[in-house]
């Protein structure tokens, strides 16, 4: 693309973001403020993730972009095209082939490898925001590891609903020190955060924060001993590939209650169908 630097951002901005990434990696789960730039995609649509990816990509990288687990959802297509135009790098839909994966709201079903980077798009980086809307007050709470309010919230959920009714963006404790929002991935995906061999980076453009879970870091979903973390998944098999352990999308087929379920991770589903006997 004429007139633009490789991957859109100028080198100075990339260096600024990389410095923020290094800080984030050094303090797992801690939110590092950074001077987020206006991007050609709107705030709230992945600008944080895009800035992370833009500052990490090199000409030999292979990029996969997914939204809701699929490569062909509109926003994933838009972002992948953006990088194809501004960086000219190879793109792929295969999780196993990618060096950098940018994702919104899912972790791929295919286990990640050491050396891969997964970049999460984060709308609200602050896990305490519903309990304490002031970011300044929340920052104090993180600094002092003052997380009583969050535990009280979970206690109240069990009291009111009999279980913790948080089904996505389920708060986690990183390295037993920082409370973190894993982004609005379904609670079902939380266990994949723990001891993952890949580098996990989280970017919030509008809120101007970067945070990280380095490879092989302990990540624990908050729960009680007698009400352990128990994420839900539709009790069905994928109508296309038959999988029973992947996260499923509900497809409504008519207005008389007809529905079917298919894997949300389109790459995983396709691979399963390709290798099926």
């Amino acid at each position: 693309m004429q007139g633009y630097n490789f991957a859109y951002l100028d080198e100075h901005t990339k260096r600024m973001i990389r410095r923020a990434i290094l800080k984030a990696v050094a303090i797992p789960g801690h939110q590092v403020p950074f001077a987020s730039r206006e991007m050609p995609l709107p705030y709230g649509w992945g600008t944080g993730g895009i800035q992370l990816t833009a500052s990490l990509l090199g000409p030999d990288d292979v990029l996969k972009v997914i939204d809701q687990g699929a490569d062909d959802t509109t926003n994933a297509v838009s972002i992948r095209r953006f990088f194809a135009r501004t960086a000219g790098i190879r793109t792929t839909t295969r999780t196993a082939e990618a060096t950098v994966i940018q994702t919104r709201h899912r972790i791929p079903e295919t286990p990640l490898r050491e050396g891969q980077i997964i970049v999460y798009q984060v709308p609200i980086p602050e896990p305490l925001y519903r309990l304490e809307p002031s970011r300044a007050a929340a920052a104090q709470m993180h600094a002092l590891a003052d997380y009583g309010a969050m535990h009280v919230r979970l206690y109240e959920e069990i009291t009111r609903h009999g279980r913790v009714a948080l089904s996505y963006d389920y708060p986690v404790m990183v390295n037993e020190r920082y409370l973190m929002s894993p982004s609005p991935i379904p609670a079902f995906d939380n266990p994949k955060l723990h001891m993952n061999p890949a580098m996990q980076l989280f970017g919030a453009g509008r809120e101007k924060r970067i945070y990280a879970v380095p490879p092989f870091t302990a990540v624990r979903s908050l729960d009680f001993e007698d009400h352990p973390f128990d994420p839900r998944r539709a009790d069905a098999a994928c109508a296309l590939c038959g999988a029973r352990e992947t996260y499923l999308d509900e497809i409504v087929s008519d207005d008389r209650g007809g529905k079917m379920f298919v894997c949300s991770d389109t790459d995983c589903c396709e691979s399963r169908r390709e290798t099926a006997p």
Binding site: P40, L41, N75, V77, E250, I251, V252, D254, D255
Partner: peptide, 21 residues
């Protein structure tokens, strides 16, 4: 809230996925 549903997803004339260049 649903990936697909009766009547489908119709984007129509939207700027949603344009790049703001």
């Amino acid at each position: 809230v649903f990936k697909d549903l009766p009547g489908g997803q119709r984007l129509g004339p939207t700027t949603d996925y344009t790049h703001r260049l």
